[in-house]
Design a protein around this nucleic acid. Structure first.
Lengths: 191, 191, 191, 191
DNA sequence: TATGAATGAGCATTCATTCAT
DNA sequence: CATGAATGAATGCTCATTCAT
């Protein structure tokens, strides 16, 4: 998977061949198929891994007992930025994947995994919002709706920054963009 | 382009063949190449079209003299939803495109067009925010930053809904999600 | 034909398209087919032209009454070099053509033309040799055989120099190579 | 390579498809690409093989200690005829190749191989001439120039005979033509 | 005479996948 | 558990040629 990550990052998913990955992993092409049913599943496994990482990070924020809801929003931002820095390319890929034709040909098991992890991540955020609402810190809205909005904001920013980098060759302003967006979001949900 | 739209929607970009499109258009494959340099450019042309449409809609909102800034945010939401309804698949595709390996192999002319239209769209929103800031309706933040946040929110929501549809087979809740997200955003930027 | 010559020289016969030639000639592709049955015949027409030119030159040498046979060999060399300089690429192409798969698909008329011109050129040289043999200046060999040898020598040198240029990027030493080869040939046929 | 030789001989290089060759070799098209980078390189490999064969033959003649220089010229003729008989079509193809657009797209390795073999072949002949010059049997001329002349004569004759066969349907007189040309050449370089 | 848009058969090449070892 | 040679279906793209105007 490390090899695959490296190759996908370098060549992009479509241009990377199984042979490339096998070479990078110092394995033979055939061996890859002992561990992954096909190329799609190999690709998705990478997404799953980062989704797991994100999930853990978000849950961890939720479980911090001593943190005020408002601070937790801050912590979410940090968590998201951490995940991004851990592996930008794979994160981007993951957000692409979610609405892609690849999903259609995936094994139900894997789709189910993705579904669970996504749901779990959004749930983790929703819990935080729910707490905030109960404490009268956040506006009284469906916590899930708040969580989805934040999720959308996060993924949208990731893709926007990627697109800016590709089109303009811009440097990496993600941190700033993220700060700014979270500030607006935080104000938007404050009671 | 209508044929291509149909075929891409049906089969997805990678699975659609030039022959499929030619058949749908009742043309020969060779003829497609008289009008589009290659498959990528044909695909991107579709994105360009919807980006143009979005651009016009956003500019139109900006130019409405009698509308209060707060109403214009509402109008932006309507505009975005209109564009989505005009052609969901192509809009999704467009947001994918922006951060994709396809961009790397595109003719500079086309990349430049995309760049201009994106910039112009964001600028149109930024103008609205600037007006609102001047009128002391919105918080005093860089209007461009506000615009980018809204853009990210929009694209993130589009992709999130698409992913929900693919994974859960959920019905189309975009309208609701959009409403909810815009409400938060509007509160977030209100002074 | 001038346009075709230019395009073939630039791109080579296989890579040059009829559209290239039409553009260069400021005509439409269709129009080319009013004058040439197909691409092969257009190509061969060019060869025919230079073969005609060579033919005239060689005959002219033969008809110089006041020239000793030995001088005529010198004159042949000059004639050949002239033809080469007139259009190296087309001459090379012509020698390639003669033993190529293109010939198999040519109209009988054109094949017949080539045949006649080649024969006539060789005949012109043979006449010179015959004269020399009668005058006891050249060895008593079949004049046609002498002519064919000289023809082979000429074409071989043309192709060798072309190959040297392509492989080594060497400058144009054709003149020197030709001199040297003719000297050997002249000694070889002198009584 | 045997399959390719057969197919090229039958259909000519341009008309032969990779599928034809694969079928003839009882392999799949893809497998061909495991051994040859592309069609051009497959074609050139054939040329390389005969060039190697020619090279060995010529060197062998040069290394015969007991042969007088004059006999070595005879032996060269025999060697060349042997190579021709070994595979006429491929030899013709080889001489075409040397001055062709194909060379431009070849891997540097292959071009370098061709270059070396050609040079080595000409050198082998030049050595023979040098020996003859030292022994006062041949005229005192640059041995390399003599070698190139003979090379040109050889290739020119090969192509001329091929063209005669194509145009006139003539039988194979190569042996005779070669004899005659070598006789002239031998006289031409004799002191 | 000239056009040029449309053709569509044709082909090189790729690469995910398999399977005998 | 690993191999890697072989596969062969799949497809983007080309370009000589045509024909209605």
């Amino acid at each position: 998977m490390i090899a695959a990550k490296r190759v996908f990052s370098l060549k992009g998913f479509n241009k990377a061949t199984m042979e490339d990955i096998a070479n990078e992993a110092e394995l033979s092409p055939g061996t890859l198929y002992l561990y992954f049913k096909n190329k799609d599943e190999l690709c998705v496994s990478l997404s799953l891994r980062i989704l797991q990482y994100l999930n853990i990070k978000l849950k961890h924020v939720g479980s911090e007992k001593d943190l005020e809801p408002e601070r937790k929003i801050e912590a979410l931002k940090e968590a998201m930025y951490d995940v991004y820095e851990f592996d930008p390319l794979i994160l981007i890929n993951m957000f692409h994947l979610q609405s892609n034709e690849i999903l259609k040909n995936l094994s139900p098991q894997l789709v189910s995994n993705i579904k669970e992890l996504s749901a779990s991540s959004i749930k983790a955020m929703a819990d935080i919002f729910e707490e905030g609402i109960k404490k009268n810190v956040f506006i009284d809205k469906n916590p899930l709706a708040l969580a989805e909005t934040l999720w959308a904001l996060f993924s949208g920013i990731i893709l926007l920054e990627e697109s800016k980098r590709l089109i303009d060759g811009n440097k990496d302003y993600l941190k700033l963009t993220l700060e700014s967006a979270f500030e607006i979001f935080a104000r938007g949900i404050k009671r």
